[in-house]
Structures are given as C-alpha cells and as structure tokens.
C-alpha cells in the first residue's frame, strides 16, 4: 500500500475529521444521536483506516499494544468506578444523583463519565481486534 498517493493523501486529510467527529459524537451524545458505543467505533475506524493505508506498524507506533490493553480495562473500570464512587457518596450503585449537589447536574456528570468509559473500551477493543486479525496475517507470511 506504499505507493497509492491518492489514498495516502485522502486518508491523511480525513484522519483529523474522523477523530474529531468521534469526539463530537462522544460528547454530544447527550444532545444528539450518538454516545460512547458509536463514538468508540468511529474512533476505531479512524485508526483502522490509517493502518489499512500506512500499515499496522505505523498505526502501532501511535497506539501501542500496551496502551490498548490498558485502555480496554480502563474504560470498563471507569464505568464500574463511577458506580462505586456513587456508593461511597452514599447512593446506590450507579445512582448519579449524589455526584453533585444538584441531582440533575450529578446525572449529567455521571452520564458523561460513563459514556467516556464506554467509548474508551469500545474503541480500544475494536482497534485491538483489528490489530490482532491483521497482525496475524503478517506473522504467517513472515
């Protein structure tokens, strides 16, 4: 894939937009369609596009496997952690009302944080699965 100039240029042009759009979907999930799941997948597809065109090696340099494994667990822990945090504050598990003084504000923060957790886990799992699939072919050919 090294020689396709048009693909490389277009991919480079699109990358920032895909990633920003993913973040928009992530944090705008409260107001429009979207949320952690969709944002995570879009973020991952940005990386997959990059690694399809520039190779796994280049993408792996940006998002190393250690980071991926860490992020996979981190997102889930963030989500579950919010639950335990609300329990520490005296509420039920995942009862966001207690996070802030104003219950609706607490709901807002809670939803934002757990959506971030969802997004992190989904994105890193998708990228990890793709790396695993694509990296395997290379290992077999070598």
């Amino acid at each position: 894939m090294r020689s396709y100039l048009v693909l490389r240029v277009v991919a480079k042009l699109l990358m920032p937009f895909i990633l920003v759009f993913a973040l928009y979907v992530q944090f705008h999930g409260d107001y429009g369609p979207g949320g952690g799941f969709q944002a995570g997948v879009i973020f991952a597809s940005g990386f997959i596009l990059y690694s399809l065109i520039f190779g796994i090696q280049a993408a792996g340099a940006v998002m190393s496997r250690g980071i991926l494994r860490f992020a996979t667990a981190m997102g889930l822990l963030l989500y579950a952690g919010v639950g335990f945090y609300t329990m520490l504050l005296g509420g039920n598990y995942l009862e966001y009302d207690v996070i802030a003084a104003d219950p609706t504000k607490g709901q807002h923060i809670g939803i934002l944080v757990i959506e971030a957790g969802v997004g992190i886990t989904v994105a890193s799992v998708m990228i990890a699965i793709f790396f695993t699939f694509a990296g395997r072919r290379k290992a077999d050919q070598a």
Binding site: D30, G34, G35, Y93, K105, H108, I111, I114, E115
Partner: peptide
C-alpha cells in the same frame, strides 16, 4: 427533568438502564 439530557435515548441507556 431528572437528567436534563435532551437525548432521551442516552438518558435511558446511561441512567435508567445503567446496569
């Protein structure tokens, strides 16, 4: 009123159906 999140799908997913 409870969540002040305009997208009800998100509110239900993340709050009412948090588990």
């Amino acid at each position: 009123d409870k969540t002040t999140v305009p997208n009800i799908v998100t509110a239900v997913l993340a709050s009412y159906r948090g588990y």
